[in-house]
């Protein structure tokens, strides 16, 4: 058994997302007028040893996000966990 952790890193809501804004403009110009917002982020899959407890995995994943995957100055993150 392995813990599968799916991490989503996105820019904080108050931070400008130029990439998302550009994609939105392009979609609108292509005729998808109803698209009112695009925010882009990064997706990462982590695999942990299945022997770890849920709490331990969560703690480590939090640390990993804080230290490396996200820059807390501009980004926030969330993750989902699944053992399979």
């Amino acid at each position: 058994m392995v813990w599968h952790v799916s991490v989503y890193v996105t820019l904080k809501p108050s931070v400008q997302d130029p990439q998302g804004a550009t994609v939105q403009r392009a979609l609108n110009q292509m005729g998808y007028q109803s698209v009112q917002g695009v925010r882009m982020g990064k997706f990462t899959e982590l695999e942990f040893d299945g022997k770890l407890s849920e709490a331990e995995v969560k703690k480590q994943a939090d640390e990993i996000c804080d230290k490396l995957l996200a820059n807390p100055n501009i980004e926030s993150y969330r993750f989902t966990m699944e053992k399979k």
């Binding site: 931070v15 400008q16 997302d17 130029p18 804004a21 550009t22 100055n73 501009i74």
Partner: peptide, 11 residues
Amino acid sequence: RSAVQVADPFM
């Protein structure tokens, strides 16, 4: 934190 911004060279 808010003192740093995201650059948009395309803009």
